[in-house]
Simulated assay, not measured.
Amino acid sequence: MTRPTTDAPIPQGNYLAAKRHGDLVFTSGMTPRKAGVLQLEGPVKAQEPIESYKDAVILACSNALVAARNQLAGGEAVAAILSMTVFIAAEEGFAAHSKLADFASAYLAETLGPQGIGSRAAVGVATLPGNAPVEIQLVVAIG
């Protein structure tokens, strides 16, 4: 599996990468960016193998996890991923939304173990910011 960046995500507008409230962290939607630069653009193509998008999905998910972890105080850790929403900008005819989202679920399970799997929604949309193919948002419990 590709090892994503551990650099803090750079907000692309007037918002925070993540916001903590008590023992919960809510991340903003994260796209597949490194140092603020989108690594893959355009919609997910129906005829393209979904593996072509694996690195982009993992990078977006890693960015969300890094944003959440940046809200931790000393000695704290991610206790569980409570919820993940995967937005997919897909061309008409694409129907493998949940299979694409499985790349993010597998990354979280590999990184955090069983607590990395929470509830999930995979949502097809017409477009995403910056013409990104995928955007991922997490709700994380801190322990």
Rank of each mutant, 00 (worst) to 15 (best):
T6S: 14
I117R: 13
V57A: 08
T111G: 01
V123A: 11
V123C: 14
G124K: 13
V139C: 04
G13Y: 07
Y107S: 13
D7C: 12
G130V: 10
Q12N: 15
L100T: 02
Q39R: 07
D23Y: 06
N70T: 01
E135M: 15
A64K: 01
A95I: 04
A109T: 15
R33G: 00
N131I: 07
D7E: 15
L82V: 11
N63C: 05
I136A: 01
T111A: 08
F26P: 00
I10R: 12
A8N: 11
P32T: 01
P43F: 01
M84D: 09
T127Q: 15
E91Q: 14
A18W: 03
I142D: 14
S28V: 00
A60M: 13
E51F: 09
S52N: 14
M84S: 14
I117D: 10
S98R: 05
A141Y: 12
G75S: 12
N14I: 14
L65C: 05
E48L: 05
V57H: 03
V86W: 00
A56D: 05
T31E: 06
S62R: 02
P32E: 02
A122L: 09
Q47H: 13
F87D: 05
I58E: 02
L128V: 06
F94K: 04
T6M: 14
G113M: 09
A67Y: 03
A60L: 14
G75A: 12
G36T: 02
A89W: 00
A109C: 12
H97V: 07
L128G: 02
C61F: 02
D55E: 11
A126G: 13
P4L: 10
V66F: 06
L100F: 10
E135L: 11
A141I: 08
Q12D: 15
A35F: 00
L40N: 00
A89Y: 01
E135S: 15
M1E: 15
G74Y: 04
V44P: 04
A17Y: 04
L16Q: 13
R69D: 04
A68Q: 09
K45G: 02
G113V: 06
P114N: 12
P11R: 12
A95F: 04
K34H: 02
A141V: 10
R120N: 05
I142M: 14
L138D: 04
L82Q: 14
